[in-house]
């Protein structure tokens, strides 16, 4: 897929087909693409399979996934946790599970990382310790248990879980800045680099474009996603609202959302104000 030279949010949203698998991030860094999520809701995207990397359980990341669930954009989610962090449960997530309208593939955080790392390397699967004896494993027929094939001779049985690689169709995230070449700076947060490596299409919003290129400064280069991995980049100041670039979050804004989203009617009103339209049918 190709993108215009200076894409808008709607251009980015158009690159997310119905039914796509999409990675989103955990929201302890200013990685939450709320403005893009709003554009996706406006476009009326349907049937997404969202993979949270590895959770959406900070206030802003939980709110983003909850909004997309409530707006009817998500058919299934693979996650290790969805909540509004210390503010409490994510209301639309809870309601959708109860109503049976959302399929949940329950995971554990290192399993999401291991599967994406395998996907990023083009390997078919990744082994992972733990898991054995859990109901997570029992309900994941795609996860297998094998006997460690490289154990020392005579060491006895050593069962270990193996997880199929994850390659999302699309990675979406926000970042503080991109340079003139379109390289994206994410600091020490390697999760966005991992998502970019593992996904086929990478859509990024940034607060600003700055002149020059980050590779001129080794300190910045270490925290940079090369432009070659980015499919499309839109400049959206405040695109990670209610997060701020220092990693903080406007908790009152999330509380207002949480309060509204407790009921179907309250959510519909909130969504109409949020995206400027009624809930798509």
């Amino acid at each position: 897929m190709t993108a215009p030279h200076s894409p808008t949010l709607d251009d980015l949203a158009a690159l997310v087909p119905d039914g796509a698998s999409v990675t989103v991030h955990k929201g302890d860094e200013p990685d939450v693409p709320m403005a893009l999520a709003k554009a996706l809701i406006r476009r009326g995207v349907r049937g997404l399979h969202v993979i949270t990397l590895p959770t959406a359980a900070y206030p802003a990341s939980g709110m983003l996934v909850d909004l997309l669930i409530g707006a009817g954009c998500i058919a299934s989610v693979e996650t290790s946790g969805i909540s509004l962090h210390e503010l409490g449960p994510a209301p639309r997530f809870s309601a959708a599970v109860k109503a049976g309208t959302l399929k949940v593939l329950d995971a554990t955080c290192p399993a999401v990382y291991a599967a994406l790392q395998a996907g990023a390397k083009g390997q078919p699967f990744a082994p992972l310790r733990g898991l054995i004896g859990s109901d997570l494993l029992r309900h994941r027929p795609d996860w297998k248990v094998i006997d460690n094939p490289v154990a020392a001779p005579g060491a006895g049985p050593d069962p270990i879980a193996v997880l199929p690689a994850l390659n999302a169709d699309v990675a979406i995230f926000h970042a503080a800045k991109a340079d003139a070449e379109g390289n994206v700076w994410v600091g020490r947060d390697r999760d966005r680099l991992l998502a970019a490596h593992a996904a086929d299409t990478v859509l990024v919003t940034v607060d600003e474009r700055v002149p020059g290129h980050f590779f001129a400064d080794p300190a910045l280069a270490a925290g940079t996603i090369p432009a070659a991995l980015i499919t499309a980049l839109a400049v959206v100041p405040g695109g990670c609202w209610p997060m701020t670039l220092d990693g903080g979050c406007d908790l009152d804004a999330v509380r207002r959302y949480q309060q509204a989203a407790r009921t179907d009617e309250g959510f519909a009103d909130y969504l109409a104000g949020f995206v400027g339209t009624a809930v798509p049918a």
Binding site: P54, T55, A57, T79, S80, G81, I82, S83, P89, A90, F93, S94, V97, K98, G100, K103, V104, D106, A107, T108, C109, P110, A111, L128, R129, G130, L131, S134, D135, L136, L137, H139
Partner: peptide, 26 residues
Amino acid sequence: LVGTGDYPATPVRWSGSFGSAYLYFV
């Protein structure tokens, strides 16, 4: 950390298992 009752139709759904299914082991 997942919910009450017969999975996946959990009458009460919690946020999820986070890193427990690994960290508890190691």
